Computed example of a mutant assay.
Amino acid sequence: MKFKNRITYFILIIITIVLGLLSRHFAIIPLFIGDILWATMVYFIMWFLFINKPIKFNVIAALIFCFAIEFSQLYKAPWINELRHTLFGRLVLGDGFLWSDLLCYVIGVGMGVGVEKAILKRNRPQ
């Protein structure tokens, strides 16, 4: 059963990545949608990694990770700035700190909780 659940989360991660990347290619879609989807993906990754943990654990872990990445953007050492100028660095680490991104992350994790409850219909420990 655990294997099947991990496959489900893996599929949700891939779908979220595709949606997030597509959101950057259409000018009509606001940029903050990508930030929301990024946090949703992080939430699904937390479930993939910590499948037996309660919802609160995965919500807090996802938010801590997202917030840590955002606050790391205040660190401007040359080596990390060079990394941020690569595709991988830009997608994972971002470019610059924005307070509004923190709100996007909360919305994205909340969206992940909603998707999980609606689609997976699991009775997870709270």
Rank of each mutant, 00 (worst) to 15 (best):
M1A: 04
F3S: 04
K4V: 06
K4A: 06
K4P: 00
N5D: 05
R6W: 01
R6C: 07
R6A: 06
I7E: 03
I7S: 09
T8P: 00
Y9H: 14
I11G: 11
L12E: 10
L12P: 07
I13D: 06
I14H: 07
I15V: 15
T16F: 02
I17H: 02
V18H: 03
L21K: 11
R24I: 03
A27D: 15
P30R: 08
L31M: 05
I33Y: 04
D35H: 02
L37A: 08
L37F: 06
W38D: 13
W38M: 09
A39V: 05
A39D: 09
T40C: 15
T40N: 13
T40P: 03
M41F: 10
I45M: 14
I45Y: 10
I45R: 06
I45S: 14
W47A: 01
W47I: 10
F48V: 05
F48G: 02
I51D: 09
I51P: 08
N52Y: 10
N52P: 13
N52C: 02
K53C: 08
K53N: 11
I55P: 09
I55M: 14
K56R: 13
F57P: 15
N58K: 11
N58L: 05
I60P: 07
I60L: 15
A62G: 12
L63G: 05
C66Y: 09
F67T: 13
A68K: 07
I69L: 15
F71W: 12
S72C: 01
S72D: 03
S72F: 10
S72M: 03
Q73T: 06
Q73V: 01
L74M: 09
Y75C: 07
K76T: 13
K76D: 04
K76M: 03
W79K: 03
I80R: 02
N81Q: 14
E82V: 13
R84I: 10
H85M: 14
T86R: 08
T86V: 08
L87R: 06
F88V: 15
R90P: 12
L91S: 01
G96P: 00
F97E: 03
F97D: 05
F97R: 03
W99N: 09
S100W: 11
L102T: 04
L102P: 08
L103P: 00
C104D: 13
Y105R: 04
I107C: 06
I107V: 11
G108M: 06
V109W: 08
V109L: 08
G110Q: 10
G110H: 12
G110E: 02
M111N: 09
M111L: 15
M111A: 14
G112A: 12
G114N: 11
G114A: 12
V115T: 10
V115G: 12
E116V: 13
E116H: 13
E116L: 11
K117T: 07
A118E: 01
I119A: 02
I119D: 00
L120W: 00
L120V: 08
L120D: 01
K121T: 00
K121E: 01
N123D: 09
N123G: 00
R124E: 11
R124P: 08
Q126R: 08
